[in-house]
Each structure stands twice: as C-alpha cells, then as structure tokens.
Amino acid sequence: MHHHVIPLKVYLTIFGSLLFLTIATVGVSYMPTVPIVHLIGALIIAAIKTTLIVMFFMHVRYNSHLIWSFASLGFFFVLLFMVFMMGDYISQYYSLTPATHAVPFDKF
C-alpha cells in the first residue's frame, strides 16, 4: 500500500468544519453592514471551504507537487480572470443598463 490512507477522523472533522462554514455564510448575509462586506465575506468563506475540500477530500495535500501546482494554478488563473475583468468593468463607463441603445437613457 503506497497510497496515503487518510484517517476517518480527518474526514469527519473536515465535514464538521464545512457544515459550520455553511451556517456562517448564511449568518454573514444577514449581518447589518454594507453590501460589499456581504460579498467579500461570502467569497472568503467559499474560498476556505474550497481549500478544505481540495486539500482533504480531493487528497491534494497528500499528492505529488505536480498535482499540487496544477490545482493551485487553475484557481490562480480564475482569480486573475476575475480581477482583470472586474477591474475593467469597474474602471470604465460601459452602460449595460438600457435594453437597447436605440432609446436614449433618459427616456426610460
């Protein structure tokens, strides 16, 4: 047996943490604060849950460095994609609001 067999206790602990974080993410959305805090809070909790699942349920923690770098590069590129796309949209004055450009904005 050359593969790492993870003890059952680890799986159950991770599952418990995932349940706790699910309740936490619902709780965050009810917090009386500014909307961006809700979004960032939700994304941070989702990122923690993803890390737990990838590391333990998907065994990346016990896999070779090649798998480890492959998995993390994938998520890194998604992060790059989101940061550049949103950076572009937030910094420019695109208007998606009118359904057609034939109607001037103030006529709505």
Binding site: T25, S29, T33, P35, A42, A46
Partner: peptide, 11 residues
Amino acid sequence: FPLLYLVDRAA
C-alpha cells in the same frame, strides 16, 4: 449558494 441565494439578505 452564497452568490445566488445570499445576496444581501440583511438589506
């Protein structure tokens, strides 16, 4: 789940 169901429930 948070992106679709939990958009500013407090608001």
